[in-house]
């Protein structure tokens, strides 16, 4: 899953360690999410969204556009 975590972090001048501390995860987790090797859980995605003051879909992109209501 693509995400804008690295860009949002850089805009705030945060290191991965600082972001990891704010999200209560390890630097390894932040690194794995930023490089697309790990997709965060919904609770962690919500924490990231609240931290940056954005909606989850403004940070994470699953590659599908629009809504899918069947």
């Amino acid at each position: 899953m693509k995400n804008r975590l690295k860009v949002l972090r850089a805009e705030r001048n945060w290191s991965q360690a600082e972001l990891a501390e704010r999200l209560d995860v390890s630097r390894q987790a932040v690194n794995a999410i930023e490089t697309g090797k790990y997709d965060p859980s919904l609770p962690l995605a919500f924490r990231a969204a609240r931290l940056f003051g954005l909606a989850i879909e403004d940070i994470f992109d699953d590659g599908h556009e629009g809504t899918d209501n069947g």
Binding site: A17, A20, V25, R27, Q28
Partner: peptide, 12 residues
Amino acid sequence: AAGAPTARERRN
């Protein structure tokens, strides 16, 4: 290389 560990990493 990784910098200062977070509190969770220190406990780990």
